[in-house]
Design a protein around this nucleic acid. Structure first.
Lengths: 117, 117
DNA sequence: ATAATATATGAACACATATTCATATATTGG
DNA sequence: CCAATATATGAATATGTGTTCATATATTAT
């Protein structure tokens, strides 16, 4: 990409160059976007909420969120890939649980933002 | 929706009822999902990064993110609607700036999560 | 008023995503 | 081995999303 020359009065060309140079690389932006995307779905948020209360099997999660077992499995796969949940197998049953201590704090911040009108 | 009866051994029907009853209502889940969705796009994250460094006009943002002015305007609209950026007009130019003190902390948490392998 | 400029907006398109249905896989008990 | 059960997976579909192009709006200077 070419050098950037600023067009407006609020910032100098030099400052432009600096903040452009310090932009995290493409991978970081994309990884971060992927991470937040996981929280950007009400069904997944509900699953995370329930798991924050108790370890649960897929069937019970399906009852709780009121969605088909298949849908829940698909979403659990996404949560698993993003290391937000872990699981253990007991016979034919699979119990899922939260696997991230950042979840609570990230929720707290979102709640605060939404509370402030 | 009908009463929930748990199917697995890990939790009792009573506990199921309780965590189900305490699930935040549909509105809350949706609002929260919408909020996170905003962060789930690399272009918007870049815009937020640049604004975290300096107030900027649309044209400069467009140069910095390497995307058409129109695309940037569309994304700024979304950020505006979610009260993440504010703006001031100076003649025909519009300067945008961050309008949320939670952004930094939410980024910090995401970064931490992604750092941990 | 007119021209020039910065930004905003709407339509169109390509692409991603969530859900469902049908079915495969894996585990246990008989 | 076979049947029953819990979960996972793939295809299909409907809906959502981001970008571009074209154009509208708004502001300033001449």
């Amino acid at each position: 990409m070419n050098d950037v020359i600023c067009l407006c009065k609020s910032i100098s060309p030099d400052e432009m160059q600096i903040i452009k140079a310090e932009l995290p690389d493409e991978n970081t932006s994309n990884q971060m976007a992927e991470f937040f995307k996981v929280f950007g779905d009400a069904t997944r948020l509900k699953i995370l909420y329930f798991l924050s209360r108790h370890e649960l099997c897929v069937a019970d999660l399906s009852l709780l969120v009121g969605m088909q077992q298949s849908a829940v499995s698909h979403q659990l796969k996404i949560l698993k890939l993003n290391r937000l949940v872990k699981y253990r197998k007991d016979g034919v049953t699979v119990y899922y649980a939260l696997d991230d201590n950042h979840i609570e704090s990230i929720f707290a911040i979102a709640r605060q933002h939404l509370m402030e009108q």
